[in-house]
């Protein structure tokens, strides 16, 4: 059983939902990342999404785009991100790490070399924003399956039932529902719309469903925990890094405080329900 499956199994038994924070590797500098990952686990994170910086992050809003730019100013490469994961693994052998990024750095490294190196480093899942199931099927997926790495696919408000079934069939670990039409960190969630869509996905899919894009505060995190299996929070955390880029301790404190508050709110929500 993969680390991701283990986490969802354990949470299901206790009736809790997964909290999945996202930060960009190497933002604001390479030294910040691994201690931050450990601190997020201590604050209640169940799975970690680690962004691989890319020069042209088309699906991201300005907050995560700037995080990529800060990391790239330190020339943080995919290989260096894998070294960070390996370093994290030396102190934590249970918390799953999902790499989130764009296809070109992986394409440049070579799919086979990447799958091998990611497995070696202790990566559990890979979410490639611009690689839909259709283009992943022939080359990438067999290599990831073979390396025991879970491909995580996105679903959107515009996804058809056929596409939901396809992502569920080809994906592993969980499905990531992009809760709004837009980029990361955008606007506000329409809770009713998300509720209806997530229910629709859950009716068709076997994999757990996480909700992300637009989760800014403990209240929204709690609402999402009430309807999905996992809650992803990214831009709200990355914004803290940007605000306190010169003060790593302060950034870390603010992020762990926000995550801890989200954890409490989510756990209360499901206990009340």
């Amino acid at each position: 059983m993969s680390r991701i499956e283990t986490v969802f199994g354990r949470l299901a038994q206790s009736g809790r939902k997964a909290l999945i924070p996202f930060i960009t590797a190497g933002d604001p500098d390479p030294e910040f990342t691994v201690p931050m990952l450990h601190a997020m686990v201590d604050a209640g994170a169940d799975i970690l999404e680690l962004g691989v910086p890319f020069s042209d992050p088309m699906a991201d809003g300005p907050v995560i785009q700037r995080a990529s730019e800060r990391a790239l100013a330190h020339r943080v490469s995919l290989r260096q991100v894998l070294r960070m994961v390996a370093e994290f693994r030396r102190g934590d052998d249970t918390t799953p790490i999902v790499l989130m990024g764009y296809l070109n750095p992986i394409e440049c490294m070579g799919y086979g070399a990447f799958a091998e190196a990611a497995k070696e480093a202790g990566v559990d899942g890979v979410l490639t924003v611009d690689l839909p199931p259709e283009e992943a099927e022939d080359e990438m997926l067999p290599l990831l399956y073979g390396a025991g790495i879970d491909p995580v696919f996105l679903l959107a408000p515009t996804s058809t039932p056929e596409r939901i079934e396809k992502a569920d069939r080809l994906g592993r670990g969980y499905l990531y529902y992009v809760s709004l039409k837009g980029v990361t960190g955008a606007g506000h969630l329409d809770i009713e719309e998300v509720t209806r869509k997530v229910a629709g996905i859950q009716a068709l899919a076997e994999l757990p469903v996480g909700v992300g894009f637009g989760v800014k505060d403990p209240e929204t995190a709690a609402r999402m925990a009430g309807l999905a299996d996992a809650v992803v929070v990214g831009s709200a955390l990355v914004r803290k890094i940007e605000e306190h880029a010169g003060d790593a301790c302060r950034a870390r404190e603010e992020i762990t405080a926000l995550l801890a508050a989200m954890r409490r709110a989510m756990d209360e929500e499901v206990t009340l329900a």
Partner: peptide, 12 residues
Amino acid sequence: GGIFVAETLMYP
């Protein structure tokens, strides 16, 4: 060629 985009754009 192909279609390498985020899921939201697949339907449009």
